[in-house]
Design a protein around this nucleic acid. Structure first.
Lengths: 264, 264
DNA sequence: CCGCTTCCTTGATCTGAATCAAGTTTTTTA
DNA sequence: TAAAAAACTTGATTCAGATCAAGGAAGCGG
């Protein structure tokens, strides 16, 4: 059983109830049988990180893995002269860490206040070995992330700055839709989990270019900027028509797009 | 048991001996017990594809999965106006296809003559359900591919054309090293599995830019172009110093870099 | 509420890679 | 083995996004 501890960025508590866990039905533990679930409960440790904190740093030993339960975080990798690229976006339910590897490969940074449900890597690996339900779920999640990473490689390799920004909006709308298990209407409102500089790092652009494209898209009526971190998308289909790959952004909805107009 | 069949691009044969399979010790089946191994043997189907052939096409139903046993292939994804990006490189031992998904997400194209060891997706999924060894191995392979994809996202998002090309060379040297289980000396010779236009698609550049950077690197003595598809790298460390991320290309060797000079 | 800092926007200019345009070399085919 | 096609290289020009530079708006700490 875990001793309660505290460090610079986070706190540990055992007062956490899995039955009201916000990611209970899509995290790595979501397909466990009751017995496996008890094992996880016994070894879990809830921690929180404040916005901007490093959850892990590339190169340091990987001591724990776990699920992101609240907030959002991102994976980042840097070139030696400081150029940076975000290489992944972590939303509630996503798994953090890599069983079978002893060293962290990417910086993981809290984009907002973040809450994690962590396990020491050895403890987790023991459950992983023993439980086909857990390893199957983790495989499924990893395969999904691999597909998403490859889809994003197309954006980074070939899309224009306008296409990149509209693709990011489409991605965020979908994330919301999936996690809120809400259907998307013709219009949508998204909360940006990042500052402009983070968006630039995500898209492989500079902050100035990102800012200009925000203005352009607003000028063209494709988005409405409502305060620094909120944007309204009056017509989702018009937006994805600007991504250069509307087919896959429509398709990725898994058939949940609601085409009815007259929402706005 | 599989009936022998033939189609436009490939042939099926049952004359294939797993005990001399070139990827026996790192493919998805490499950790099976003898019983599981027999199951694979019973359902496998060997097929070959000629250079340039589509092994699978994005959007079509995924009917089979399998291992690449000989040759190399790549994953590609296109924007609607035809811009293309390679999003993965498949070498012998790599797994093709995605259990749990019914539709192919990427075009898969044979870069050379290719030989595959395929299974019908349903057959494979049955073994995957039953065998922890197979699902653990597939998880491990998928996690490795995810890391590789994310590393490449940094190249596509932030690297200059010169850095992209040197990174590709570093990647190919490492692939060789890993598959030949041969240590890398200070100098290396690589066989390019692609034409210039494929390299351009891989790097997110145009063919003209790729050609110019080849010439520049040769002019600077970092490579020697020996025929269309062979290049000699006289000094690997000098080459990776040009990638903008020499640390990770050195590191990725898993400590196998041989620093002894006087090889050339 | 004020001053400070951080974040964001906009403008002017520059630059690396794209595009357009020939040529050259290699490979294929007849 | 000659002709045609495909693959590659090099040069001139253009352009999207980077860089350099300045100012404005929002959040914050006292």
């Amino acid at each position: 059983m875990q001793v309660t501890s505290r460090d610079a960025t986070g706190t540990t508590t055992d007062k956490f109830n899995c039955s009201v866990c916000p990611v209970r039905d899509h995290a790595v533990c979501s397909r466990c049988n009751p017995e496996e679930f008890e094992q996880f409960k016994a070894i879990r440790r809830i921690r929180s990180f404040s916005k901007g904190a490093h959850i892990m740093r590339a190169g340091e030993p990987m001591t724990s893995v776990g699920s992101l339960t609240r907030g959002s975080a991102y994976l980042r990798r840097s070139l030696e002269d400081g150029r940076r690229q975000m290489v992944g976006l972590l939303m509630p339910g996503d798994f953090i860490g890599r069983p079978g590897r002893r060293e962290v490969a990417f910086d993981i940074i809290a984009g907002t206040e973040v809450q994690l449900c962590q396990f020491r890597i050895g403890d987790f690996e023991r459950i992983l070995q023993a439980s086909p339900a857990v390893s199957r779920r983790l495989l499924e999640m990893t395969l999904d992330e691999l597909d998403a990473a490859r889809l994003w490689m197309l954006v980074l390799g070939r899309a224009t700055s306008r296409e990149r920004l509209t693709s990011l909006f489409a991605l965020l709308v979908q994330h919301d839709a999936r996690h809120m298990s809400r259907k998307i209407g013709i219009s949508a409102k998204i909360e940006l989990p990042f500052a402009r500089s983070d968006i630039a790092e995500f898209l492989g652009l500079t902050i100035e270019t990102v800012s200009r494209r925000f203005s352009d898209l607003q000028g063209d009526g494709l988005i409405r900027i409502e305060g620094r971190r909120k944007i309204l998308i009056p017509d989702y289909l018009a937006l994805i028509a600007e991504t250069g790959d509307s087919e896959s952004w429509r398709h990725e909805f898994h058939g949940e797009v609601c085409l009815s107009s007259a929402v706005e």
